[in-house]
Design a protein around this nucleic acid. Structure first.
Lengths: 158, 158
DNA sequence: CTGATATCATTTGCATACGAATGAATTTGA
DNA sequence: TCAAATTCATTCGTATGCAAATGATATCAG
């Protein structure tokens, strides 16, 4: 009489509803948000297995700085989809490890300029091949054609 | 001469490489992990706009309990893809709000049983229609056909 | 039966992630 | 020009998310 009392009735009710067309049946497992969260978790896990000493957001910051060179902290955040509070923490940790350095903007005194250090540059150049492997492993469950389709649709959602 | 000094040379180098076949060019924006992270962020944002007083993980816990009835905290975590440490925090907060209640397993004294309270049951029944709207809005950039394809491929990845 | 293993839950430490509030500096507009 | 609005960065509070360590309990193997 523990859970059957309430839940049992519900399971019965749900069976009846299923026969009626399943309209009131909500399956968490089928919701895009839930699957999206799991897919993201899996990717982060793959990332960690290949690049243990850097998180995906930290890698994103380095990769973007490598791509575009010095920028303001806020601008960098915009480019890698992090709000101001989040990017500050990421940059602080990269700074503490000597991978980036910060300086004040000459004219606009509000801005904090961020750039790679030589060590940061060396690190990102060393890691980019691993990042390609991570992408490959993440997409491994799909065929090449499926992967292309998936990336196209995912980009439309993001 | 602030940032052009190093970055300018790099952009030039990259242009040359692009002519060579783009092999050394790494574009964060095209990586599945980065787009996955952004898509997830967008969904969480949509979720928050429709259900402000509950997070997606909290909702997942309630929805799963509504679906299967009372379970152990660990088992619930497995079902909604959360590790033991994470699910504990989620359940603690739901418990503090009176949406779930916990009790000790009669025979296995290690287990902590979790179940919906009447308030929790009422809440999840009220929220499920909103969850459907959230799914719809998240998938809105895709046609119905694209959405079906996307969900199929996403599920293979997750 | 009992020692080795395994499971369940908790705790700690670290790292995103975001809303909201704050302060400093810049830009806008009347 | 100068007050209002905006932008940039920081800080605080809250909420995932995971690894690792710990303690309590349960199960298994010999």
């Amino acid at each position: 009489m523990g859970w059957p009392q309430v839940s049992g009735e519900d399971n019965l009710l749900r069976l009846v509803e299923a026969e009626d067309g399943d309209e009131n049946n909500y399956h968490l497992q089928d919701q895009v948000g839930f699957i999206l969260r799991k897919a993201h978790q899996r990717h982060v896990s793959i990332f960690a297995s290949q690049i243990g000493d850097l998180t995906p957001p930290q890698f994103a910051a380095l990769a973007k700085l490598y791509d575009i060179g010095e920028t303001s902290q806020n601008q960098l955040g915009t480019l890698i989809a992090m709000d101001a509070a989040t990017v500050k923490g990421v940059i602080d940790r990269l700074k503490a490890r000597g991978l980036v350095e910060v300086s004040k903007h000459e004219v606009d005194k509000r801005r904090l300029l961020v750039n790679l250090t030589p060590e940061g540059r060396e690190a990102i150049e060393r890691l980019i091949p691993l990042a390609r492997a991570i992408t490959e492993e993440t997409l491994a469950p799909l065929t090449a054609k499926e992967a292309a389709t998936f990336l196209r649709l995912l980009a439309k959602l993001a």
